[in-house]
């Protein structure tokens, strides 16, 4: 049993739900929706945490791709642009789980696996060095 975060992009949000049901039935995959978004052109994005056997997960992903759904492996939707970051530390103030943390040299480190996708750090960064992938 493994756990994995994936980011799905749908041509139309409406296709999201039935596909997800299919995943559970056919591939024995358990999942939770961490984030769901829809843009102006009704393109949808879902951040899922899926749990299941590696072989089932791989088969599930093939199935999704066959149905024109974009699948991206992500650790976290949050990305820190190292070129813009000055290691001020302002983002660490709002990160409740210390996914953003200062190392012993006072340089920012980003533990993507710990991220809860709360997005507060995006607003907290004065350099606007943090953005989300989508």
């Amino acid at each position: 049993m493994i756990t994995k975060k994936i980011l799905l992009s749908f041509p139309k949000m409406a296709t999201g739900k039935p596909m997800a049901m299919e995943l559970i039935k056919t591939y024995n995959l358990d999942f939770s929706i961490l984030k769901a978004m829809i843009d102006d052109n009704i393109k949808g994005t879902l951040l899922l945490e899926i749990r299941g056997k590696q072989t089932d997960i791989d088969a599930g992903i093939v199935f999704l791709r066959e149905n024109q759904i974009g699948v991206k492996d992500v650790q976290s939707m949050v990305v820190v642009d190292q070129k813009k970051c000055v290691s001020c530390g302002a983002c660490t103030a709002v990160c409740a789980v210390n996914a953003l943390e200062m190392d012993e040299n006072w340089s920012l480190v980003h533990h993507e696996d710990k991220c809860l996708e709360c997005m507060l750090c995006v607003k907290a960064c004065p350099m606007r060095a943090i953005h989300t992938v989508m």
Binding site: V86, S87, G89, A90, T92, A93, M102, N105, W106, S107
Partner: peptide, 13 residues
């Protein structure tokens, strides 16, 4: 209570 810096010691160095 957790403490966080706002000015960059890294760049200051």
């Amino acid at each position: 209570i957790k403490t966080s810096p706002l000015s960059s010691l890294k760049v200051a160095r």
